[in-house]
Amino acid sequence: MRLAVLSDIHSNLEALRACVDHARGEGTQRYAFLGDLVGYGADPVACLDLIQGLVGEKGVAVLGNHDRAALTGWCDDMSFEARDAIYWTRRQLQERHYGFLRSLPLTARDGEIAFVHASANDPGKWTYVTDGTQAARCIGASRAPVTFVGHVHHQLLYYTQQVGRPRAFHPTAGVPIPISPRRRWLALVGSVGQPRDGNQAAAYAMLDSERNTITFFRVIYDYSEAVRKIIAAGIPERFAKRLETAS
């Protein structure tokens, strides 16, 4: 069974479609979304409709901080520009979208796999997993052999050792990494709709539960179209520029 894990889509329809097409080509049978489905981008409606369809009965989706802001209108902890994007998003969404967002849990669990937007250690506080200490806390809280996490917008794989904090590994796109059952693994899957590591290509990860591997992918997409739509919609231009610089 192949499971594609996508996070931080941020209403970027071009990036989302490119990743879903790529995942289909890789033989994906199930999808998991790690939150921040909306915010920043110009296509919240189309993205949520597509995601809701992919999640269907078998899929997984959890709530991100931007999704909660869009749902509640409460975004005091965000920058003014991010708030503008949220207010704009709220004007586009219809009741079925609010209903879908309302149904999303903060964490999800499927057998040996845990899904969460930010650190599983108090997930509603939206803590970034940025180092081995945070990774250890997140793994300790999720209590799962494999935990998929978003929120930080770059790809990284943490794994536990016999002593000391979990170690970080920078994956190479497209190389399947065997997941030893003797360790616990925390995969930061990167961002579909707003990569921030200098590489404009959309990021996602795939778990192959037969071969016991995780593969990180980067997918090129037409980001100039996403940029054009953001500017045309009147969303703060900074979020368009960011797609071009991937910063």
Partner: peptide, 10 residues
């Protein structure tokens, strides 16, 4: 291109 599982401690 794979995680390094060897720990110096051991």
């Amino acid at each position: 291109r794979l995680p390094d599982l060897v720990e110096e401690e051991f």
